[in-house]
Design a protein around this nucleic acid. Structure first.
Lengths: 151, 151
DNA sequence: GCTTGACCTTCCCATGATTGGAAGGATTAC
DNA sequence: GTAATCCTTCCAATCATGGGAAGGTCAAGC
């Protein structure tokens, strides 16, 4: 099977398959004489595993761990669970953060006439100067979340 | 006021202030003879506006619009409200997406013993092959969301 | 056998907001 | 006068993904 067929069968784009190979998430495949990558059903199965993991928002790093646990017959389920729960924690923190933004904005928008006049509580709140601003550099970094939907 | 002081007073890092200037979100400042950027209280006010907008998850592009509406005395509040509500829509879509991930994972984790044995519903679900995978390239791209917390 | 189109290859670039760091000049405090 | 702390510009990295160019390969139809 060529990369395009593997992509169609797994739901992972050919671009991403090559990328995953380049970063070592999946092993280098066999090639035809002319250099085409060749995939087996087993490879497609792995790619689906990866895709489902991405759909759940896991980072590539976490997926690497999940894949190796998957292939380890002597894995401890607690190791899998730990990865999953840690990710749930990240997701929930992120959700709360977005919910705070959304509720603040909805509250402000509710009080905005939304007509042709300039008066606007939203702008006023943004321009509000008596709130404490210099809460610089709090904690860890986020990322990756939000790309799953871009696929 | 130097850039460092403006950064401390506004909560926007010096790096980001330079970046915002480079992309045209804020105008080029006056410089001292030796090339140092000089900021006024008014500039700091603008930076705070930007920071508060970022805290609410607006993209730089939206912030540019908000800033120009802010400075427009004849703005229509509906233009502001439209930006805010569109952003609320994006936030809520994102929240729903993350909630689905989290609830799926929590459900799976609940059914995982989390002990030393290999049996694990989480891995099994990821490896589950009878689900439809090739839902490729759905809709728009997300981004920016999630960087607010990284500041 | 030859052309055409659909595939494949590698390589580089862009995204978005942000941080890190290097190399070098300016200012300030002692 | 010197050391420490600022400032400057420039380049690179993050993270996962897509876009596209330049060129090679393969299969089908004529």
């Amino acid at each position: 099977m060529n990369i395009g067929q593997a992509a169609a069968a797994s739901g992972v784009s050919a671009k991403m398959i090559r990328y995953y190979e380049s970063i070592g998430l999946i092993p280098k495949t066999v090639r035809t004489e002319s250099g085409y990558r060749v995939y087996s059903d087993h490879d497609v199965h792995t790619l689906r595993f990866i895709r489902r993991s991405r759909d759940l928002g896991f980072s590539v790093e976490q997926i690497a761990d999940l894949v190796s646990l998957w292939q380890d017959r002597e894995r401890a389920s607690k190791d899998v669970k730990a990865i999953a729960l840690e990710h749930v924690g990240v997701l929930e923190r992120k959700i709360r953060e977005l919910q705070e933004m959304a509720s603040t904005l909805k509250h402000l928008a509710r009080n905005c006439h939304g007509d042709a006049r300039p008066h606007c509580p939203i702008i006023e709140e943004l321009a509000n100067d008596d709130v404490t601003p210099p809460a610089t550099k709090p904690d860890a970094k986020f990322g990756a979340l939000g790309k799953a939907s871009a696929r």
